[in-house]
């Protein structure tokens, strides 16, 4: 099951899947480098605010490439596969929104601890839930 979650290009035309995997690997590698460089600079050089903002933007650029790769992938799918993607994304958005709102209320009303840099985890959480949701949505159409 995990392989199906990780292989989100499953079932796509081979050319589209190959391009998607290539673009995602490149964007992921750039992301790791950008985050590592940003963390190093911010930790050891105590840069001015504008440099810190530039570092944050540099880490975001590869995420933009990932989103571009996904949109190109989506455009290469047939209508049924696009339906699966849309339903999976909707489930991911609903689960993450519900989860974050729930914890927000628990934090505000019940004194649950504040999670530092919580907003950073929204995008990865959506990606993970989206991956699992795809497996279940595909299974429903079998």
């Amino acid at each position: 099951m995990l392989s199906k979650v990780l292989d989100c290009a499953d079932g796509a035309p081979p050319k589209v899947a190959k391009r998607y995997r290539g673009e995602m690997i490149l964007a992921s590698a750039l992301y790791v480098i950008a985050v590592a460089v940003s963390a190093f600079v911010l930790r050891w050089f105590d840069p001015p605010l504008w440099v810190a903002v530039a570092m944050a933007a540099a880490a975001l650029a590869p995420v933009g490439l990932m989103l571009r790769a996904y949109l190109r992938y989506l455009a290469g799918l047939d209508e049924f596969q696009r339906r699966v993607q849309m339903e999976s994304l909707l489930i991911a958005a609903a689960v993450v929104a519900f989860g974050s709102l729930t914890y927000g209320f628990l934090q505000a009303f019940a004194g649950f601890p504040v999670i530092e840099d919580a907003l950073i985890w929204v995008f990865p959480a959506m990606c993970v839930v989206w991956g699992f949701a795809q497996v279940f949505v595909r299974r429903r159409y079998r």
Binding site: G11, L77, F80, Q81, Y141, R142
Partner: peptide, 13 residues
């Protein structure tokens, strides 16, 4: 289209 699409149409899903 993909084989999965044909299967989903055939099964009426």
């Amino acid at each position: 289209v993909s084989r999965q699409s044909v299967n989903a149409i055939e099964t009426g899903k």
